[in-house]
Design a binder for these strands. Structure first.
Lengths: 212, 212, 212, 212
DNA sequence: AATGAATGAGGGTTCATTCAT
DNA sequence: CATGAATGAACCCTCATTCAT
């Protein structure tokens, strides 16, 4: 599988690598791909531009490498959750809590993801196709199938579609928790709502949508 | 209320205005705000840069004017729907159909909207705050209240939250219908699904979420 | 003798002509020739750009016409003074007073003149050569010759040079009274000096320079 | 104390730095601030625009840096003169000679200075306020005080004003020696005068202005 | 005569990438 | 390997001038 960074990037000190990652992700997240200045990233990360180019072949690769890191983080978190054995309702609750925690810990990654989903970056996102979103997708199918087996949701439920609808809500939740625009939109709809109430209601709404 | 174009823009021929609007929206939608070249827009629209700047004070204003046009179009469509008097289920069906139609007719506007929601453009979107999204917001509350009055949904339903969750699904639907990234995501979840099936299922899922 | 405005400029209403003159002189004076925008002048003067170009062939001509008007104003003031029959000392005093009055009434004209003297505008100033500065030059020679005849200054005084040195001081006085830079310079040298004291001392200094 | 160039400008080869300085000063001097094209300066100095912008943050800074260099040159020259211990008359003579020499060696710097004094550049000149003109100002006061102590000029002489009047003449001399406009003006007053005669007369005129 | 929309070359500045040290 | 100076195409925007109405 292709990698977006050169081998040298694996060999540098953790501290330097972290500085680059943190800085680059932040800049790309906040300014978008085109408006972000690679030279500024290097300067702010305390390395030379030459070095940056010895770790990544181009701006594009740097960007994709950063996205990949974000995806990996999410993958790890979800994998942890997949092991959880509880009722469907509890799993859903944990999923939402995890989503909130992940998004609050890494708000820049969600912004980055939103940027990536933009038409401007479709050519870039296509270079990522195989790797991205595997995580949640598989997870949803797993827990839904399990719930179906346990009779928690009706046997006639179309699992793929259910997974898709749930993911829609989860994604919008992420956006709402990390970007100004969607936060503002949420506020317009719900005012200064308590987060736990929102999560509880979202869970109930999802659960109910399986009834019938 | 503030306007983003200069008065001169109202005075030019419809054909010229349409060429500018179509070209500008397309470029901004496909390339994003920063990567879009104002001079290219002018050339492609068949006018001089000087003229473009006599219609709009800046790239920013041009962009916002284009977004406003998109919002207006959506407002008009929704207003039409608001007059419809049918069952909640039928109204929902019409809403989804309208969404599909609008999105397919104006895929660039949805892309534009996605761009606008990006953190990079938060400063711009804040210049629009009052105007945008009013349309759907009010519409949802109206039809939900009406449904509640008619006993089609439970009296204890939190209308604001229901509206928000529905809008989440509708927005994701729009993105899925107009941007490569979300289309790809939908395909990963659902394969080459028939659109009418998707809509029917989405409607059922939403309706069920009110039961309980 | 060449004129810098077209005939049409003579035919418009006084009010319109005055508005143009006031606005143009102010802009040129404050922003310099190159940085001044002709279209802005037209707008601010309440006329169309087309009209402006029907009065003047070019930006250059407009500028020169404005300078010419300033020179004419000064000529008139000096001519009035030339008729004065008093002692050399009194004449000098009146000259300085006149200079102050003229400069305070028309600070923009002095700024304009300073701009004109700049190397950038040498090609323009050369188009004015015959007309400009005639006024003061002749005036100085006249009063100095008169003073020499009356025995107020020594017969061996080189009148041309004396005139030149006096004009130097008068010009610097004008600059000091109308431009920020020279006002600041004066303040550095003399602090918050009373103007009448400055004038009195300048007169004395000039008078003394003839003694010996 | 603030500096107008970036650190990089100090690190380049002398030859390159000199080429930039010479070219920039010449262009600014001859065309004025606004009409000067930064890209032309770069090209003529044999460097890229990008490089120029890596030495200076903006056109404004480049301009101010050039002015500062001129001021420094003058400061150095004056400092040299301040050490001279001779009669007041001899000192004055040396001052005028120095002025002539400096102005002929660096005619562009005087033109630059004239530009700077223009109202258009008042905002820029204010960024320089503390540094500029200190040189001559202090020098005049020093030599005048010394002359007063030695009884060469009357004890009641107002030194600040005398300094100011002398500087006026010295500045006009500089302008006359380096700019077309003031050279032309001098010619109108004095014809094709021998320079040494002019200097001698100016010195006498100044000296006489202290008698009484 | 008056208008002001239209033009497009030109200007200050940025930034991804290269390469000599 | 690391550095950061150097490059120059490209971008947003301005403005003197023209010309159809």
């Amino acid at each position: 599988m292709q990698q977006f960074h050169k081998d040298t990037f694996s060999k540098i000190t953790d501290s330097k690598r972290d500085r680059i990652i943190t800085t680059a992700i932040k800049q790309f997240a906040e300014q978008g791909y085109t408006a972000t200045n690679i030279n500024h990233i290097a300067k702010q990360a305390g390395i030379s531009i030459g070095s940056l180019y010895s770790y990544f072949n181009s701006k594009e690769d740097l960007f994709l490498a950063m996205v990949e890191i974000g995806v990996q983080l999410l993958n790890d978190a979800v994998a942890e959750l997949e092991a959880f054995e509880g009722s469907f309702s509890d799993t859903l609750e944990r999923l939402l809590e995890l989503t909130v925690r992940y998004t609050k810990e890494h708000p820049d990654l969600t912004k980055l993801y939103l940027n990536l989903s933009t038409e401007e970056l479709a050519p870039l996102s296509e270079r990522l196709t195989e790797r991205i979103e595997i995580s949640f997708h598989g997870f949803y199918e797993t827990i839904l199938k399990r719930a179906q087996d346990k009779g928690e949701i009706p046997p006639e439920t179309d699992i793929a579609q259910a997974a898709y609808f749930i993911d829609n809500q989860v994604m919008m939740l992420q956006f709402s928790l990390s970007t100004r625009y969607y936060a503002q939109r949420l506020k317009k709809y719900l005012g200064e709502i308590d987060q736990s109430v929102l999560l509880a209601n979202l869970k109930q709404s999802i659960l109910r949508s399986f009834d019938g």
